[in-house]
Amino acid sequence: MAHTIVLGNEKGGSGKSTTAVHLVVGLLYAGYRVGAIDLDGRQRTLSRYLENRQAYMDQMQVRLPMPDWVSIRRSEAQDRAEAEAEEGARFEEWHARFSDRHDFIVVDCPGNHTYLAALGHSYADTLVTPMNDSFIDLDLLAQVNPREIAQSKLSHYSEMVFEQRKQRMLRTGTNLDWIVIRNRLSNLDAKNKRRVGRVLEKLAKRIGFRLVPGFGERVIFREMFLSGLTLSDLAEPEAGMNMTMSHVAARSEVRALLRGLKLPVAQNAFDSAGEQEPQRGAA
């Protein structure tokens, strides 16, 4: 059975789909078979990223690793129960198909609460929740007492994760590994950054997740969307990317994330992804 990685939260703009596509391509370069499922039938950010990647390859006449992928279209049924049953059946069908012939399945959930998002969470072997490094995004996990900087109440999202953990336990008898990653981290040692870090460490013990470093505030992660490229493509001459020192730093963040997830892979699986020397004098 494939190992399922679910990218989920209920806030947009946290880098969820960017993280998803970097996980997909990083695993492909490591030699694993990967299937991707886009559950956001409206926004389709992961799907559009992969479509851009295919268009880039066609235009440049190059070959880069591509996953098998599908976007679960939204049901047109007017009845809510009928629509949920139809969408759920589509997801379960494609998950079963991919599970038979892939090593990993990466599922990108919409940035709001939907039936499909909750169902996807219940299939996670590894749940990855990206958040921007701020108290606004921290509210995704729990309400925080401003005086004591301590948890006062779990968020709706955290409660949903607990419920889907139960559903998974009933269905498979196994638990999921929940990981929260801090994206758009500033390079400066700011007071607010330290405060957010302390609260997250406390919440990790109380709620039951692991903290893993995410991606810094780097333009390169947003610029690559139009071409569908990732930092793992840097080693490929076909990608047409000239490495700078900024790319090297961003690539190291991708590798650190891949290793920090502690997926069932070879110990050195991600050590050489994107190997290429930067241009001298580049900043």
Rank of each mutant, 00 (worst) to 15 (best):
R182M: 13
N145D: 15
M245H: 09
E238F: 08
F225H: 08
E217T: 09
S155Q: 07
A249P: 01
D233V: 08
E253N: 03
S186R: 12
A249R: 12
T174G: 11
G260P: 01
L263S: 04
F135M: 14
R251I: 00
E253Q: 13
P130M: 09
D103Q: 07
P237K: 10
L27D: 04
F135S: 11
N175D: 15
Q54D: 10
R194V: 12
G12N: 11
E217Q: 14
R73N: 11
P67N: 02
F215E: 00
M131D: 07
A77K: 11
G216L: 09
G260N: 04
E277D: 12
V107N: 02
E93F: 10
A2M: 02
M241T: 06
L261I: 07
V128R: 04
Y157F: 15
L39I: 05
V199L: 13
L261P: 03
R33N: 02
R251Q: 12
G120C: 09
F270E: 03
A269Q: 05
D38K: 03
A239Y: 00
W94T: 04
Q164E: 14
M60W: 05
L176N: 07
G13H: 08
A239T: 05
D271E: 14
R210P: 02
M243V: 12
M243L: 12
L203K: 01
Q143T: 13
E76S: 11
T114M: 12
A2I: 00
G41D: 06
E93A: 12
M1W: 05
H22V: 06
A250Y: 01
A190V: 10
S14E: 07
M169K: 15
E10Q: 15
P110D: 10
E82W: 10
I5K: 01
G214E: 03
A30Q: 01
A142Y: 03
M169A: 15
N145I: 07
A96D: 13
G281V: 11
I207D: 04
Y115L: 08
F270N: 02
N192C: 09
S17Y: 00
G111K: 07
P67D: 03
R210S: 13
L231V: 00
E82H: 11
Q279R: 14
P146K: 11
Q43S: 10
S122E: 07
E76C: 04
V265E: 01
K193T: 14
V212R: 06
F209Q: 01
P110H: 10
F162Q: 14
T174S: 15
K166R: 15
A204R: 04
L23D: 02
G281K: 11
A235M: 09
D38P: 04
V128C: 10
L200P: 03
V106E: 02
G13P: 07
R101K: 10
G214F: 02
K11S: 08
L200S: 03
G173C: 10
L39V: 05
S75F: 09
D58N: 11
D58A: 12
D133N: 15
